[in-house]
Design a protein around this nucleic acid. Structure first.
Lengths: 111, 111
DNA sequence: CCAATACTTTCCCACATGGCTAAGTTTTCA
DNA sequence: TGAAAACTTAGCCATGTGGGAAAGTATTGG
C-alpha cells in the first residue's frame, strides 16, 4: 500500500492549536499574505509565522514568496488526504464500536 | 446552540501522539486494565498512566477502579461526538474548497 | 537611492509534555 | 496477617512549544 504523504502526528498536532485551526479556516476563504493573515490575531509577526511554518510542515498549508510577499494557501491535496484518512479511520472506529457494543451486550446477558 | 461537551484542542492533541492513538485502537477491541493496556508498549507504568489520563481529560476514554484494578474503555459517546464534529468540519472544508476552486477558476479566466 | 514595507532571523523566556525511578497505597489471596 | 499485585504519587530531567523583542534582509515606490 502506498505510504501516506501526510504525517498524522503532525496533522493532528497542527490542528490541536486553536490559532492554527483559525488560520486554516481563514485560508479556506482564499490565499492570503502573512500580514493579511496576522490581522485578526493579537500576535507578533514572528509568532504567527511560526504557526504558518508548523502548518506547512504538516502539509496542510503551502506558501510561496514572490517579491517581498509570502502568499499562503490551503493545500487542497493534503486536505483531501486528511479527509480521506479521517473517513477511513472513523469507519474503523465504527466497526470496532459495534464490536464493543456487542461485547457489552453479551456481558449484560450473562448477568 | 449547545456547547460541545468535548474539547477540540484536547481531542486533537490527545490524538497527536501515536502511543495514545494505539491505546484508543486497543481499547476499541474491548475494555482493558492499565497493566493489560501497557503490555505491548515499552513504557513504564506511570508513563502509560499519564497517556491514559490525557485521553480521559480529552473525554475519549473513561475508566473506573474496582478493587485494585482500573478498567479503561473508549467513551462511545465522546467518540460519536468527535465523529460528528469531524463530519461537520469536513463538510465546511469541502464547501470552502469549492469556493476556493471557483476563485482559482475565475483567476485563470482573467489571464 | 533611500525610506518604507514585508517578512525573516536570532535570541530569550515560561511552561507543557513525555520519559524515568523510587517510594507510596490499597486490595487480594494464601 | 503478610507478601504479592496493581496501581498511584512525587519528583526529576530533557526536550518541545508558544509567546515575545530586537535586529537583519530583501523589495518596492517615490
Amino acid at each position: 500500500m502506498a505510504k501516506f504523504s501526510i504525517d498524522l502526528d503532525k496533522a493532528f498536532s497542527a490542528l490541536a492549536d486553536p490559532t492554527r485551526r483559525a488560520i486554516v479556516s481563514r485560508l479556506c476563504e482564499g490565499p492570503k499574505s502573512v500580514s493579511e493573515l496576522s490581522e485578526p490575531f493579537d500576535l507578533a509577526l514572528p509568532s504567527l509565522l511560526k504557526h504558518v511554518r508548523v502548518l506547512e510542515e504538516s502539509g496542510l498549508v503551502s506558501s510561496e514568496k514572490i517579491g517581498r510577499i509570502r502568499t499562503c494557501k490551503v493545500d487542497a491535496h493534503a486536505l483531501q488526504e486528511t479527509e480521506a484518512w479521517i473517513n477511513r479511520h472513523v469507519s474503523i472506529w465504527e466497526k470496532r464500536l459495534d464490536r464493543l457494543e456487542a461485547h457489552i451486550h453479551r456481558m449484560k446477558r450473562k448477568n
